[in-house]
């Protein structure tokens, strides 16, 4: 069964992807942040460029900074953004 999650893109990533976010139905086998990132990068174009391994990228799951191993579940809000530069 696919699971539905909300994706949020911020700052440079929002501009590169041309959208601030989307709701997607994720294949059931995509269960971690790492798997999700690779799945999105497979879209190619700006997705492949911005989500390539080695790019400075931060990911939050439900408003908490996540690691690659953080699980992804139905209803989660998952945000992709560059390293923060406030203050």
């Amino acid at each position: 069964m696919p699971h539905t999650i909300n994706l949020v893109y911020l700052a440079r990533l929002r501009e590169a992807f041309g959208t601030g976010g989307e709701e997607i139905a994720l294949p059931a086998e995509i269960g971690t942040v790492n798997a999700l990132t690779r799945w999105l990068a497979a879209r190619g174009g700006p997705w492949a460029a911005e989500l390539a391994p080695g790019r400075a990228l931060r990911i939050a799951v439900n408003h908490d900074l996540a690691s690659g191993e953080t699980p992804v579940a139905t209803g989660d809000e998952i945000a992709f953004f560059p390293p923060v530069t406030g203050g």
Binding site: R12, P83, V84, T85, G86
Partner: peptide, 26 residues
Amino acid sequence: IMDYLKTRAPFWKKEATPDGPRWVEA
């Protein structure tokens, strides 16, 4: 608090410069 804010709080700065806009790098 300031040191952690600079690295953990999700804010981003974009500058308008004579060469065009640029996102500030961490």
